[in-house]
Design a binder for these strands. Sequence first.
DNA 1: GTCTGGCACTCGGCCTCGCTGAGTGCCAGT
DNA 2: ACTGGCACTCAGCGAGGCCGAGTGCCAGAC
Lengths: 338, 338
Amino acid sequence: MLSERRLEVLRAIVQDYVGTEEPVGSKALTERHRLGVSPATVRNDMAVLEEEGYIAQPHTSAGRIPTDKGYRLFVDRLAGVKPLSSPERRAIQNFLECAVDLDDVVARTVRLLAQLTRQVAVVQYPSLTRSTVRHVELLALAPARLMLVLITDTGRVEQRHVDCPAPFSDTSLADLRARLNSRVVGRRFTDVPQLVQDLPESFDLEDRATVSTVLSTLLETLVEDTEERLMIGGTANLTRFAHDFPLTIRPVLEALEEQVVLLKLLGEAKDSGMTVRIGHENLHEGLTSTSVVAVGYGSGDEAVAKLGVVGPTRMDYPGTMGAVRAVARYVGQILAES
Amino acid sequence: MLSERRLEVLRAIVQDYVGTEEPVGSKALTERHRLGVSPATVRNDMAVLEEEGYIAQPHTSAGRIPTDKGYRLFVDRLAGVKPLSSPERRAIQNFLECAVDLDDVVARTVRLLAQLTRQVAVVQYPSLTRSTVRHVELLALAPARLMLVLITDTGRVEQRHVDCPAPFSDTSLADLRARLNSRVVGRRFTDVPQLVQDLPESFDLEDRATVSTVLSTLLETLVEDTEERLMIGGTANLTRFAHDFPLTIRPVLEALEEQVVLLKLLGEAKDSGMTVRIGHENLHEGLTSTSVVAVGYGSGDEAVAKLGVVGPTRMDYPGTMGAVRAVARYVGQILAES
DNA sequence: GTCTGGCACTCGGCCTCGCTGAGTGCCAGT
DNA sequence: ACTGGCACTCAGCGAGGCCGAGTGCCAGAC
């Protein structure tokens, strides 16, 4: 077990390193923090911390930097979440309130997060599977070709083309639209398959095949993993650390371009509460020198999707966590209003 | 006027520099190209080319590199457009055909362009002002709150909330929806204002205010410049040149994050035919060391939007132009089919 | 005139060397 | 258990020197 003072030393190292971006030595530590002991004592403590794997030396005769394990301890036991100032809060709210539609909300959220944290922001669109149906629209593009439009309570719109096995009259179309909506509007997407299961049977024989086709397209839309969308921004912030991980910026950018990777990353985050994954805790190898701070957001108490930031392991955890949490809260509010 | 051989020398310099990423000297040139003259002669030609501003020396005692003006001449008079191989064409087609909706088409196009050109790809969504209306949907969210959904022939979907001055009955809503659609479906967006101008008058007095509100929201949607959307990808490719412009990658990434900047960039491109803007020809200062290759694409003969790539001035212009042109063509096809 | 071979000159890149200073580990003393 | 002192290590930096690619110019050849 580490003594109180040693934890204090670790905290000081993390804070200084995050601030200065340079390995921190025993002398500098005692000067900048009121630890009440001499550099020699701090050196002994550092030796212990290094022994335990919380800090490391980049080279002999250099100061110490925290390891992933060190950051982990810092986040878990030493750091709080730094709340935002009220002007900041107000700015967030104002900025998000101007959004005209869901795309705009997400785009603004990304910008906001990127600016506040000065890191790369990732925002997932509300998940279909956790939303409810607001409306299903069917449009005839051609006699045997339909367009299916799906609108959720969170404002997401999905569209698919449907090639019908047989032409479909306008009245049948109106009929299907009406019956479909009456069954599914206001219901959760996960319940839709059950709700529409017996719908084809209630139609004339000639239309039944088409109705089935439409329904299966609808169900596919809900199942596909393409339905999970996200937006990223603030990649320019990566260059702030370029001189630190010059070789590493490449794989990071590459990982960020892979939606699949990011979705998995967010997926790994807990559904409620904030998740922080530090360095090698991230499975994807391009991201082993980054940390991810993610949190769910939603219009109600339940999360409909997640958002977060990706930055270097050497990040201001309390500040970042504060910003992420605040933004998630406000986005939830905005979604609830719309 | 430059002699034929001097142009040939310029072409050789551009090609070698693009290939090797290093300043090219007279000796290397004669070895790698059958110019039929000695290095000394090439040196004289180079001196002239430098005099005229087509090439420059990074330092005394280094080889020459093309200037923006040199690339310009190369693109205008010396380079053709390199067509893609047929396997490449087939791959493009297959990849784009799998797209399920417009977002997917755009996303796939971005990936494709980025991969083919190994550069940053930018794809604009079909412009509303150049599309026609496929359908307008009105949904009641609450008695005095509507949702307006706009669907274009190119598959774009825009949505807006409308707060009505007075509650609006379901029958009035259905009425408005029907009349609105009968007037605007199939028409160009630019004509919509005229087409709906007198619509409020034909409604009962009590509904007139609401109808006006809906219409003005509709018109606003068409006017706002937020309606121009785009998607970018392949930013990781920037790092390939990091060692060339290490300081410059930052402003480039920043510029790419500004949708406004990119839209302006694409907007500057000619409506028909390919546009190449080289280095300082780009007005935005973050992009003065990059070149932009852009072209319009559309479902018919008319362009509905633009797409292109952003890369270092030292890029493979013939190859890039070929890829951009081919992708634009196939995207146009896909859009026409859907 | 135009091209070529030869020659002197320049200068960025790279390698080496030695210094400096921050930082460490250890030990003896309080 | 903490502190001051001391010897040691080593990354970073600047100075100095070499090398070679590349140039410009000139006199001679076609």
